[in-house]
Design a binder for these strands. Sequence first.
DNA 1: CCAAAAGTGTTTATAATACACCCATGC
DNA 2: GCATGGGTGTATTATAAACACTTTTGG
Lengths: 224, 224
Amino acid sequence: MRGNLFAVAVDLVILTVRDGELSTLLVRRGVPPFAGEPGLPGGFVLPHEDLLDAAVRELVEETGLTITGHHLEQLASFAAPGRDPRGRVLSVGHLALVPDLPEPQAGSDAVVSAWHPVAAVEGLAFDHDRILAEGVERARAKLEYTTLAATFCPPAFTVSQLRRVYEAVWGTELDPRNFQRKVTSTPDFLIPTAETVGTGRGRPAQLFRRGAATSLYPPMLRGD
Amino acid sequence: MRGNLFAVAVDLVILTVRDGELSTLLVRRGVPPFAGEPGLPGGFVLPHEDLLDAAVRELVEETGLTITGHHLEQLASFAAPGRDPRGRVLSVGHLALVPDLPEPQAGSDAVVSAWHPVAAVEGLAFDHDRILAEGVERARAKLEYTTLAATFCPPAFTVSQLRRVYEAVWGTELDPRNFQRKVTSTPDFLIPTAETVGTGRGRPAQLFRRGAATSLYPPMLRGD
DNA sequence: CCAAAAGTGTTTATAATACACCCATGC
DNA sequence: GCATGGGTGTATTATAAACACTTTTGG
């Protein structure tokens, strides 16, 4: 074939909304290079494994999440010469959107992982700052025209919870009343359940599940 | 490092609009595997080369195009086991949008290349049907919210030419009068030149150049 | 003059925004 | 009762869509 061979890794930008902030799961690396420094979870693709399968495997190893119902997509590949001191490594970045989860367990490689607000993250190993930035940008863009925001919510959720996702990801405030009408009038976005839930004060809110809709026309946010 | 190494290639979905049809540049492969069969232009990444540089190099080799002013972006990576009979090969698909060009020269590898309407393409080598499909899907999606349609046009073009790009890529008809107002009222989309050009019958049209705008809010096409 | 394409003005329908107001709960 | 968040109705404003109409060329 050719002599210029690459090791191929997958790295994961795993996003969630915690305490009103868009957050990502980072690991503290246990082995060189960059041992002890924070980075994205990831690892090498196995000999007979496809890329998405490798990403699913890493996601499970790092978070204990089975992928069912969660969103996982390929982001982009990064292969600049010198991005890994060990040699030629191509990394295929992936983007996962998950509901707010309990603080993760220590991974199988005994690496420590934890959630960090993306606004405060910098100085990651390799070119992971850039991969994270592309993941965040993609997530923001997709919220505008898709129903993906619901993947940040638990299986059953209220309109307010969904609104807080948009507000956290975009750093904006949305009118609760107009937001309500917008999402409930989008066909197949939200499936009402019979239950309601009372969260402290105020009228109890109706619970919804994700509908089958994937695209959102017209967009959730106009102009700039 | 690890024993599971990959060869890494770049493949190009090069799109243009010719005779009112969205078309792509295909090569007839000169060497095995799939010798004699059609496929996307592409080749292996060199030892000290980044992905985009490899894609630019292949674009020049296949079309003689220098990239200046043209659009080239990474699409996605494909690495399913068995996608290449020679062994483990990861291909990073790229998407290029170019103006209507003269029929390309024979490439340096003596491969024959030619434009084909995407609607009629199937049976490409490797998984290139799928890469092409993703490229076309991406191009269609991006036209909705960006000013990228202008990259299909020559340096100076009329509003009609631009409209025919949208009509070809989407297979729709657009009202010439509303389209005119839409694009001319989007700030920094079109820069008017002093010249006009008469194309056969009818009033001569004003010529424009691409402006600096990249995004288009609200979108060019609503609903479905 | 006529046909054809470029370009403008105006009307109508639809959707976003703003916000007044009612509902249902905890205290 | 009163505060709080859930949810509905309605007026205002902006935008898209439809289309009548004028402009400028070639024949």
